[in-house]
Amino acid sequence: MASGLGNKLTGQIGEFLVCAELGRQLDLIATPFAGNVPLFDLLVADEQCRSLPIQVKAARGLQWSTRADAWLHLEVVGRRQVDHGDRELDHPSLIYVYVAIAPRTDSPTPPRDRFFVLTQRDVQQIVAPAYRAYMESRSVPWQRPRNHASFDARLDAAQLEPYEHNWDLIRRQLEMQSVP
């Protein structure tokens, strides 16, 4: 399967899995927007018509790619990166759901998809220190080995485990809204 199609399918599967899980876990209605809304992937609503946008990040493994410069003010000076601190987030309470899509199997008890539910601020508080530690550990600190302007970073399921099945975060954010 072509990489572009594979990535689209992974995103689509992740969004629909999250919609289904929101119905199963919280009795909420959710609908995806097929990638047409830049800040979020789906909208969830409860019986009181309160709603929340949700960003979904899906992977067919236990790692998700992100850009460190989405979370940190980074500058490239010569061959080194310079850290100017954490970025100010526009939507720190925006909910992110990271989905680890279980592999296909013929087993009678297939592996389960994994869901990690957290806020944009929580993601930043994971990515920023991890990226700083990685860059400090380089043989030449703050210099990427091949492409000095690369801001590639990874989130690993082990880093997200405290947020696994944290569906109550969505319920709490909905309940904080006044009923329209």
Score class of each variant (00 low, 15 high):
A153L: 06
R60I: 08
L9M: 15
L26N: 09
R154Q: 12
H73A: 03
V56D: 05
L39C: 06
I95A: 02
Q143V: 06
A68F: 13
Q125I: 04
Y134S: 07
V77W: 00
I54T: 05
Q124G: 08
R146H: 04
D83H: 10
F40S: 09
Q143M: 09
T66N: 07
V37N: 03
D41S: 08
P129I: 02
D152F: 01
D86S: 06
W142C: 04
D106M: 04
R60V: 08
D27V: 07
V140N: 07
Q25D: 04
S3A: 15
Y134I: 03
R50I: 14
F115G: 00
V123E: 05
V82I: 12
P103L: 07
S178C: 08
V18D: 06
S93A: 10
S107T: 03
E136P: 00
G6L: 14
L155S: 09
L5A: 13
W142L: 02
S51L: 09
S137V: 02
P53G: 15
V127K: 05
W167Y: 02
A58S: 15
I54R: 02
V140T: 14
A70F: 10
R138H: 06
K8E: 14
V77F: 05
S51W: 15
L17Q: 12
Q177G: 03
C49D: 13
Y96F: 14
V179N: 00
Q12P: 04
A100E: 03
V123T: 08
Q125G: 06
F33S: 10
A30T: 08
V82G: 00
D46M: 12
